[in-house]
Design a protein around this nucleic acid. Sequence first.
DNA 1: ATTACTAGGTTGCGAGTAG
DNA 2: TCTACTCGCAACCTAGTAA
Lengths: 223, 223
Amino acid sequence: MGVNESLRSRYMDILIEIARHGLGDEIKLSTSRLASGIGLSQQSASRLMKDMESKGMVSRKVFIDGQVVKLEKKGVDLLQKRYSELNSIFSRKKLKIKGELVSGLGEGRYYIGLKGYKKQFNNKLNFIPYAGTLNIRIDKKTGTRLQSIPNFIFIEGFSTKKRSFGGLKCAKAKIEHNGRQILAAVIKPFRTVHGDDVLEVIAPYFLREKLKLKDGDRIRIVV
Amino acid sequence: MGVNESLRSRYMDILIEIARHGLGDEIKLSTSRLASGIGLSQQSASRLMKDMESKGMVSRKVFIDGQVVKLEKKGVDLLQKRYSELNSIFSRKKLKIKGELVSGLGEGRYYIGLKGYKKQFNNKLNFIPYAGTLNIRIDKKTGTRLQSIPNFIFIEGFSTKKRSFGGLKCAKAKIEHNGRQILAAVIKPFRTVHGDDVLEVIAPYFLREKLKLKDGDRIRIVV
DNA sequence: ATTACTAGGTTGCGAGTAG
DNA sequence: TCTACTCGCAACCTAGTAA
């Protein structure tokens, strides 16, 4: 009896790749497209699909010019199980970050304005950020816990003819100030000029004006 | 890519197993305990841990009687990335609808006010709608996807002595406007005077006032 | 108890290719 | 194009065992 459990993790990649195209629907997904999605060869994708079909995770209709795939209950269950594992790992405690407003160098304004980022912000955060960032120097205590922010959203890097721009992580957040809560997001470039103690915040508004902020003001952010 | 991508999925199991014991902390986790957690032999667990250490996902302190492990940034990043993949899969049911506010004929106000509907709204949506609807003309692109709204709730029709009123479908939704999110619901009468491109929205408030809306304003709804 | 090396068997991979 | 077979070989596994 082969202990095929060792394949479970490979299957997970495929389940995710399929689910990405549609959770409950029949979707056209050729073995080669699947293969490039998971970084394997077409042949391996084909083999794995057959395996998973025989295990009841997916169902397929194979035609001469391609196949139509659908996630079955067992496959969805596996995804949900993994999702809830991760969910409990990143169990949502609202993280309260306190710090004070400091001056940036103005480069935030430049980066935020770039289409390559702006479009993704709009899609993934549901707002178009004002072209500028707030730089918050985080209090020492809360700073160290920052790494464990869950629900980070990944913004991909991109290239223009002239240069390339790195990716960044961001997370929806709320700024609390004088009893008001403003929708915002904290961003964390993969490569940054700031140390780990400075957090950049973007929002749909010019926050310095809207909240009448000045350098040194204490800010509270809930992530 | 520099990393051996084919191993990534095996690593994921281990990252989860470690994270289960603690995300930011150093934890004692012997190779045999890890092994039984992921369904592999002690030897494999040992080898994989070494691999992952060399790739910077985890750090270890190995003693004569065991090891102490800690997830490093790279490892946490991988977990978060997968978490957000799954998150977007299971929250993709969130349909984003964009459109612009148009004038209704005022009949919405009449229907919403009827007891036969109001009671059901309160029971099934958990709010008593303000007596009036927002009519949103949906952008062409998003409009066609409307049929696939999941989680539709059915509101039954009913009859009075004078006449009968038809049923409708509705779905909880959020209106996003200037960074604010307002609880609301979209409704879709089985028979309607509107074409398929007009969506009616109800909410516990008089939204035109609360959000200072006027005809032609762009509205975004998340279902 | 541990970690982890070696050795040898097994599994999975993908180039080539048929249908 | 597509799916999926064969097959050589690389990658991965675990039993045995040392430290």
